[in-house]
């Protein structure tokens, strides 16, 4: 058994923390696990992506094309961009708040709203404005943990492990908000 989780977003959205949390959860649950984060510039605004592979014996941290089980996207255009990596019945968990790239801002391209909407025809898409929901909880930064909560519901790992690992990985002052964010995601259907 191998579960392939793809992650995608925009530089600065906190993708590295997400992969770290998922990896630690998998280790605690007794699986082999490997991950990948985008390598490169640390500043914001560019596309970022990563992988987590969970299973009995994982060799490569890279997911072979077309073998992704889940795509957790922090931005709709990035969900579209990486969707080819998914299996036929793959699941997309996506934050619906767009972050407009330079070429859209400078009016050279249209943001592909339609193509993003069409993803629903090919994949199971779980869409949430995690950004707004995060703000409601208290901080837009917790939006990632909402997405993690949705993912957790799909994986066969006890939610208690997720709660412990999230608590371990966030600053003291944000523990309550992140716990609330996880529950919101976990109970989002």
């Amino acid at each position: 058994m191998t579960i392939n989780i793809m992650l995608a977003g925009v530089g600065g959205q906190g993708l590295i923390l997400m992969t770290r949390i998922i990896c630690q959860v998998a280790l605690k649950a007794g699986y082999d696990v490997k991950s990948n984060d985008v390598v490169g510039l640390s500043q914001r605004g560019g596309m970022v992506w990563g992988n987590v592979r969970i299973g009995d014996n994982i060799h490569s941290p890279n997911i072979p094309s077309g073998e992704g089980d889940y795509l957790v996207a922090m931005e709709p255009l990035e969900a579209l961009r990486w969707s080819n990596g998914l299996k036929k019945d793959g699941v997309i968990i996506v934050n619906s708040k767009p972050f407009y790239p330079t070429l859209v801002q400078q009016e050279k391209y249209q943001y592909p709203h339609e193509a993003v909407a069409e993803l629903k025809e090919k994949y199971k898409v779980l869409e949430i404005n995690a950004f707004e929901e995060g703000k409601n909880i208290g901080k837009k930064q917790v939006s990632n943990v909402i997405l993690i909560g949705i993912l957790a519901r799909h994986l066969d790992i006890s939610p208690e492990i997720w709660r412990l690992v999230i608590d371990d990985n966030v600053p003291k002052s944000a523990k309550e908000m992140n716990a609330a964010a996880f529950e919101l995601g976990y109970n989002y259907i």
Partner: peptide, 19 residues
Amino acid sequence: KNNISKMVETVPRAPLFCT
């Protein structure tokens, strides 16, 4: 078998100066 591209051709997103 793995000859399909992982990426859909769509609007590129280059890094830019932070807000």
